[in-house]
Design a protein around this nucleic acid. Structure first.
Lengths: 168, 168
DNA sequence: CCGGATCATTTAACATGTTAATCAGTTCGC
DNA sequence: GCGAACTGATTAACATGTTAAATGATCCGG
């Protein structure tokens, strides 16, 4: 909960800037990630921008339409699609970047550089600790009621398919 | 970004448990908040569970249908709606709670109680620092292109209505 | 009173999060 | 080579996030 509140407290200061340039946080993360490389696969980009495939897929479609990035399928493996930022996208980054950095600097100034560094260290350590921790699968949970509602989660009708993925 | 990753690292361990009992994170936060009070107004609940009104409104509708909570409009002010948890909701909390606490304890054990405490302190301090910081409104941004896309944000057509709300 | 302002909540509309399913391209065993 | 299995990306379906608008109730100044 504190993590959620902390993130919101930070983003509250960046959102107006991004919004004024027609960007969402996610779109900004994508363009930033792209600006650091020449070209990148979609899966790798999803990792870098911390987005799930479906979200990324939709946003790429939009940003491609807006000509902020370009895609071309890799020649050696036609499943892969290589994404790269366009000059127009780069220009946008260069326009917004300084303002973003100014906000970041102001946050660091208010919060204190030392604390900010400590916080980052602790967050990285948290990530490391928990990535090594196995996820418990809640065996034996009963869930006697999850289907009595009208729009609750987990209500998709099970399609009764085998768990394997072959047979497309 | 680190805040986002940190939160995801934590929630990854809770989600399977909640899911097995037919609950989303948000629904869990709502029930937890309700279990701590007798009855509460929607706006106050939104604050406690850190949700925006519209999200809360939808989820309340669902949880009410599932009989995990109940609503009744306040007699002194019919705009206000008082929300309270039902016995069924309480029972669910009591069922899931111990497992949730076990997961939390395991996280604390792996990460270290001292670090966890420090992290919490730093997050609270961050929240405090930034809540006192004014939000800059990005005056002068040009946004020459935000409307060239097909599904980008901020593209709702302005309805050209007066800003006042009277006249019903 | 009464009509405009304000307040609490919900609805609307669209973007994103999330899981499952689909689709197309590739790999591998035979 | 060919078909089953696998992989990368997208689509589908639904929940939630987010901003604006609508709705109904209360307040308040004349």
């Amino acid at each position: 909960m504190l993590l959620l509140r902390g993130r919101e407290a930070v983003m509250r200061h960046f959102r107006p800037l991004l919004r004024a340039h027609g960007l969402s946080e996610q779109q900004w993360r994508i363009l930033r990630a792209l600006s650091a490389v020449d070209a990148i696969e979609v899966t790798e980009l999803a990792h870098d921008a911390f987005l799930l495939g479906p979200s990324l897929s939709r946003i790429l479609r939009d940003l491609e339409t807006r000509k902020l990035l370009a895609r071309k399928t890799a020649r050696e493996d036609q499943r892969r699609s290589m994404v790269s930022i366009t000059p127009k996208g780069l220009k946008l980054i260069e326009t917004v970047g300084p303002f973003s950095e100014a906000i970041y600097a102001e946050i660091a100034r208010r919060y204190g550089g030392t604390q900010l560094g400590e916080l980052q260290d602790l967050l990285r350590a948290l990530d490391d600790s928990l990535s090594a921790m196995p996820v418990r699968h809640a065996a034996g949970a009963v869930d006697s009621d999850a289907d009595s509602g009208s729009t609750s989660r987990g209500k998709r009708r099970p399609v009764k398919r085998r768990a394997v993925q072959g047979g497309r």
